[in-house]
Design a protein around this nucleic acid. Sequence first.
DNA 1: ATCAATACTACTAGAACAATAGGATTGGTG
DNA 2: CACCAATCCTATTGTTCTAGTAGTATTGAT
Lengths: 142, 142
Amino acid sequence: MRVNTKIRYGLRTLIEIASSTNQNGMLQKDISKNQNISIKYLDTIISSLKVKGLIANAKGKGSGYRLTRPVEQITMLDVYTAFEQIVIVECINNQSFCDRATHTCTSRNYWDEFKTDFEAILLKKNLADIIEETKYECKLLL
Amino acid sequence: MRVNTKIRYGLRTLIEIASSTNQNGMLQKDISKNQNISIKYLDTIISSLKVKGLIANAKGKGSGYRLTRPVEQITMLDVYTAFEQIVIVECINNQSFCDRATHTCTSRNYWDEFKTDFEAILLKKNLADIIEETKYECKLLL
DNA sequence: ATCAATACTACTAGAACAATAGGATTGGTG
DNA sequence: CACCAATCCTATTGTTCTAGTAGTATTGAT
């Protein structure tokens, strides 16, 4: 089990945006600079965050990115699922995947419960919690 | 997030072995037949389970596989890690991976805690629990 | 009209995953 | 002892996923 790069960078990007004191939000190039992520790669990350609705920007020069909600209302589940679906096993979302799925099948039950637990650990922390713990300066990190 | 095939098949294999009433343990070819896993693929799965020390067999004809411990003492964390390491992020196990890791870095703290939580949800269930919930017949499954 | 910045689409190299193949080894049995 | 069924071991294959780059189109303030 490994958390992929986009999720980690996505979190860093959100922390960066959340920490911005600039009235106009944060420019992509500044996030790139501060977080040491190539502007091109950041492109795809920001795009996912926008699609997920976690950040927004006015168009045109000088208007940067902002969070669409208060930090308390952005959970790690929001961040995670901006980049990757939580599937666990195919049959949980798609019963027709396995002809046993419609019968009582407890491996399936196990993985179903596992999925709930997994989501729960992502739900229990929000951006505010994480930033609070980031009082020590640390810009470039996982 | 997706649980890979080996872990899922590995669980099924262990359930199958645990359920065997045969005094001599369970033969690979019978697991293969009952669980509908090709004997060759099962080869690699059984190999991992043996390396992890969850199952063992006497050598020679007729002596099948058994669990090395009571079902209560085999957790899903044992099963999971027989096939895949729980890394989460590189720097948790290997501080030299990132030069920030040695500083106070709370993204790292977050993922570290995440790892602990992730392991906890695997630890909380053992094979006995899962088999108990498998009273309903269901041989071929995830 | 220009220009700095973002948005969009496609691509590539490498790693991981799922599954198979072939031969070597083992040890009980005729 | 020779045989054989079963496991053990190493390598290979095709596919999917991941990380990151490239190029171009679009936008809107100046």
